[in-house]
């Protein structure tokens, strides 16, 4: 069994927290793909029916806002890991 001194243990915890913050932001991939997909579909719909442009943009923004939630959660977790530990 290896015993760590308090300083070493603290350094390891700090390093692990920073690494964890980096890993948490992998979740940024999800909203990127999701929002891009929604925007692409919105462009297709506007091309098919230019009259409904306003409605389509509103719906797209609402959907993108919901898709963004997971990315925001990961951002908050990363901020907490960096600034509090």
């Amino acid at each position: 069994m290896v015993e760590f001194s308090p300083q070493v243990a603290e350094t390891i915890i700090r390093a692990a927290a920073l690494l964890g913050a980096g890993f948490a932001m992998i979740a940024g991939i999800g909203p990127g793909v999701g929002q891009g997909y929604a925007a692409g579909k919105a462009v297709e719909s506007v091309a098919r029916d230019p009259e409904a442009r306003g409605n389509i943009i509103t719906t797209m923004l609402l959907g993108q806002a919901v898709a963004e939630s997971t990315g925001i959660y990961s951002l908050v977790i990363a901020i907490v890991l960096i600034f509090t530990i």
């Binding site: 806002a65 963004e68 939630s69 990315g71 925001i72 959660y73 951002l75 908050v76 901020i79």
Partner: peptide
């Protein structure tokens, strides 16, 4: 929770 964190995360992320 998701409603408040969405606005908070966007503004804080931009601020950082």
């Amino acid at each position: 929770i998701s409603h408040s964190f969405r606005l908070f995360g966007n503004i804080v992320g931009g601020g950082i």
